[in-house]
Amino acid sequence: MGIELHHLRGFLAIADEQHFTRAAARLRLSQPSLSRNLRRLEEQLGVRLLERTTRRVTLTPAGERLYRQLAELLPRLEEALRPDRAGEILRLGFTWGFPAHWAHEAMDRFHEVTRARVIPIRRDEPLAGLDRGDADLAILRGSVTSPGIRTVTLQQEERIVAVAAHSPLARRERISWSEIPDLPLIINTVSGTTRLEDWPAERRPRLAATCTNFDEWLEAVAAGHGIGVVPDSIADRHIHPSVVFIPLEGAPTVPLQLAYPRQGTHPLTAEFVTLIQQAFAARPD
C-alpha cells in the first residue's frame, strides 16, 4: 500500500478539527495538499472516511474506526521513530588551522539540537581523511576536485606571508604577490594552499624546501629556509615566536570549504551543514 505517515497525520488533523482550513494550518500545509492527501488515503483503503458538506466535516463509520485506532497507534509509532541520538558522533576532519569561535559554536549548537557530538579529527592529507572514511565531514582550504566530494564554500580567505623573525623581510609592512617569485618559497605539498603553479610558468618562485604537514612548514619558515604563503586566519591561531606574518597584496584568495561525501553521507550531515553556515554568518566581522 502507498500509505505514508503524512496521509495519516492529515486524516487525524481533519478529524480533530472537523475543518479542512484549520487542519491545514495546524499541519502547515496548503488546503489543496491536505485534500489530495486525504483523497489518496481513501483511494488506498477503498472506503470513504469523511462526509463533506459546505458547512461541516464528519466521520463515516469507517472513518470512526480508523480514527480510534490511529489516535492510539500513531503517537506510539512516531515515538518509536524518534531515536535517541545521544551516542551519535559526527567526525569533522581538518588538516591544520581548525577555525576558532564559529566552528566551536556550531558544534555546541549541534549538540544542543541533536544530542549528538562533533569530534574534530586531524589528518595530514589533502581531504583530511574524508576519502578514506576517517571523517564524515571536513573543513578544507583550497579547491577540491574529487568527484565523490560535495563542498559548501563558507568564505574566500585572504593570504599572508610568513617569514622568519630574524629575516630583513620581517620589518616590511606588506609584500606584493608579484614579489614572491623573487623569494625562496617553502611549500606544504600535502595540505598546503600554495603551489608553484599559482604563478605563470615563466615566472615562478624558487622552491627552497617542501614539507608534508603544517608543523614542518612552520618550523622551516622559523629556521629561515624561506618564506611561506598561507590564509590570513592562520596568524590568529598558530603564533610562533620565530615567525612573523605580513599582509600580502594582490594575491588570489583561498576558499574555505565544508566538504562531505556525495554518497554514504552521515544522516546528520545536512543538519550540521546548516548550523555551521548559520554560525559562520553570525560571526563578528
Rank of each mutant, 00 (worst) to 15 (best):
I3L: 12
E4H: 15
L5R: 15
R9Q: 13
D16T: 14
F20N: 07
R26Q: 15
S33H: 04
V47L: 09
R48D: 15
L50S: 12
L59C: 11
R65W: 04
R65L: 14
R68E: 14
R76K: 13
D84Y: 07
L90T: 09
R91V: 14
F98V: 04
D108A: 13
R109V: 00
A116S: 01
A116N: 07
P126R: 11
G129N: 05
G129I: 05
L130A: 03
A135R: 02
T145H: 11
P147C: 01
R159P: 10
V161M: 14
A164N: 14
H166Y: 03
A170K: 03
A170W: 04
E173P: 04
P184K: 05
S191T: 14
G192W: 01
R195A: 01
E197A: 14
P200T: 09
A201C: 01
R203H: 13
R206N: 08
R206Y: 06
N213Y: 02
F214L: 03
F214S: 11
V229Q: 01
D232G: 10
I234P: 14
D236K: 05
R237F: 08
E249H: 09
E249M: 08
P252F: 03
P252A: 03
A259G: 04
P267Q: 10
L268W: 03
F280M: 05
R283N: 06
